[in-house]
Design a protein around this nucleic acid. Structure first.
Lengths: 204, 204
DNA sequence: AACCTTGTTGGACGTTCGTACAACAAGTGC
DNA sequence: GCACTTGTTGTACGAACGTCCAACAAGGTT
């Protein structure tokens, strides 16, 4: 197919990364069912044996892909918050709505997430990785909420609620983008955020 | 292992059901990676060939398991609403919090859901099944919200928000029950529901 | 220029996969 | 009690799987 030499040597980190990216593409295209060592190796343009050289198995590669993708998400979230300026309220809103725009609102991400979730129950060390990622998201949200003046006693509860809202919207957006558009999802999240964080009115 | 005859004939529907239940158990125990025709057949106590007799493949079996489990969820939700009595508000709250108690808050359900989600992107007919299940949930929620006097213009938006909230909480509850208990998830959902459905206060 | 380290290949191995099919047995109608 | 239908088994087959490893080549060292 190419006139190049049979293989080119890469720096270990670059090769690791190319395998991770290939894994993400395969997961997006064929789902976890098609994510075999061979398929991923072909996608990355390397031999099958090389995958085993860098990762203990497909599970470890999926975990690494999740970690890498999670880091990209974190970066995007931080960038969104930074762009929002100084107003705490604007920063909170930017954080919440960033999940419904590129690069986070991406079906390719969902494929990685689902593949990872499918490993959580059977693998304690993978469950720990999930807890870490989820806890980081919630922690950052708690900080933004505190900056908005939310009482400390409500921080955890409110952060969990907003995280659930964002995750649920994001999931549905990625699963059936024909039923729910990114614009609408963002609008719903903005409105729900306003309602959730406004003081409760007495019932009756 | 048994002194019974080599096989016992079952009614087709009963056999189908036993295969579906076996599939759910395998998904819960080993994840989608372990859900092969052979494994499921052993779990159901039948030969491997019989699975092919009832389902076109593992994907079709997973789809049937999803449909069956979804129907069980619908039944549980209807029962919760019926138990709540006549007050529209109580009925709405019962519907929302039912997801955080048996039989819905069950990691075994999550395994089925994740396996199903992993097929959505690559299979249009499975995506349609998801849209149907999700639409049914949201439709029922819209009816309950309408009974509570919510303006028609807000029905869709509010139902999507609440569905996302419930899904997100349920997902997190099933993924890491050590971090989030069912009781806390239900309390959060109740509180968030109250805030979401209370009139917005003018920003000041 | 000879050498060493190591990323990389390609093929071999045993296992498990999905599928197909002939043989068999449990009901059912007569 | 005999034929017929059909749910069910057991086996066999090719394809794809994960894993291993000897051989090879690229890049750095001396």
């Amino acid at each position: 197919m190419t006139t190049q030499p049979a293989f080119r040597r890469s720096e270990p980190d670059a090769r690791r990364l190319s395998l991770i990216e290939a894994c993400a593409r395969v997961l997006a295209r064929e789902g976890i069912a098609g994510a075999s060592v061979r398929t991923i190796a072909v996608e990355a343009g390397v031999s099958a044996g090389l995958v085993g050289h860098y990762f203990a198995g497909v599970d470890a590669l999926i975990a690494a892909t999740y970690a890498h993708t999670g880091a990209r998400v974190d970066t995007a979230l931080e960038a969104a918050v930074a762009t929002a300026g100084e107003d705490p309220r604007a920063r909170l809103e930017a954080f919440v709505t960033a999940s419904f725009a590129a690069p986070i609102a991406d079906p390719e991400l969902l494929a990685t997430w689902i593949a990872f979730w499918s490993l959580v129950r059977a693998r304690p060390e993978i469950a720990a990785l999930h807890d870490e990622q989820y806890g980081g998201f919630r922690g950052q949200l708690e900080r933004l909420l505190a900056d908005c003046g939310l009482p400390a006693a409500q921080l955890r509860t409110m952060a969990i609620a907003i995280t659930a809202l964002v995750d649920g919207l994001w999931l549905e957006l990625c699963l059936s983008p024909r039923e729910l558009t990114a614009t609408e999802a963002a609008a719903i999240a903005r409105d729900a955020l306003a309602r959730l964080t406004s003081p409760v009115k007495a019932t009756g």
